[in-house]
Nucleic acid binder design. Sequence first.
DNA 1: TAACTGTATTAAGAAAATTAACACAGTATG
DNA 2: CATACTGTGTTAATTTTCTTAATACAGTTA
Lengths: 131, 131
Amino acid sequence: MISLNYRDSRPIYEQIKDGLRKLIVTGAIGTDEKLPSVRSLATQLSINPNTIQRAYNELEGEGYIYSVPGKGSFATGDPDADASRREELREKLRELVAELRYLGVSQEELRSLLEEETPGGFPAGGKEGTT
Amino acid sequence: MISLNYRDSRPIYEQIKDGLRKLIVTGAIGTDEKLPSVRSLATQLSINPNTIQRAYNELEGEGYIYSVPGKGSFATGDPDADASRREELREKLRELVAELRYLGVSQEELRSLLEEETPGGFPAGGKEGTT
DNA sequence: TAACTGTATTAAGAAAATTAACACAGTATG
DNA sequence: CATACTGTGTTAATTTTCTTAATACAGTTA
């Protein structure tokens, strides 16, 4: 489900956050779908449960998952809460585009990169059905 | 020229790398223009020169700057060398777009974000004039 | 009850980043 | 030449961050 790259300079908990976030935003983990438990994922990745919990905790802070004590952690389907993160990502996109343009990638190519994603629009599920 | 955010979890040398890279790719620092010296930037930011050097060293490895012992460090205008980084950035863009789409940003808005950058194309200067 | 779940805490250990204090060689200027 | 810059390199110590370890508690599920 998630793989760690020990050559990566980034901390493990960041890699886990990114991996899970990616699964969620691509729809691989659907709305209200259960994520692996803290302990099971720790065992599976051969790392300490505390590290997993840190990742889950921060993902919850960002609004991508929610946790229910005793039950588990689940993917959020309605991430409206974090307008700040949205603006942060917009800025990231601007910088990324500027750099790619600098490296000689044409605007046409960027456009096609933009359109190859989520061909039908939103991942299945979407905003309905929450609460 | 560059500001540090001590609340940011990322290491200082990474922030410096990003800051300088941004100045370069946006054209704020033109081709063959001199960057602040290792020691002066260290003084200015109140950090150790070694930390600056690490940033400069890695930026040179990525092809964004070149250094001449005794003279200084300068912005590269011809970053053709790193096709690998280009592909890496493309992948980053894909993931970023997926996440923004998930957060409800429309494709139209993404398109406009794409077009508001470098309206005329490349930053002034460009490929000519190098060697 | 037994086996899960998330959460919390405190301590120790390991890894990474940062600083400190130098040294050497090339460049520019007076 | 001499002084003051420049980038670069090295070694060690310090500081910070990440990761692990070992528990514990409370809610859930079968």
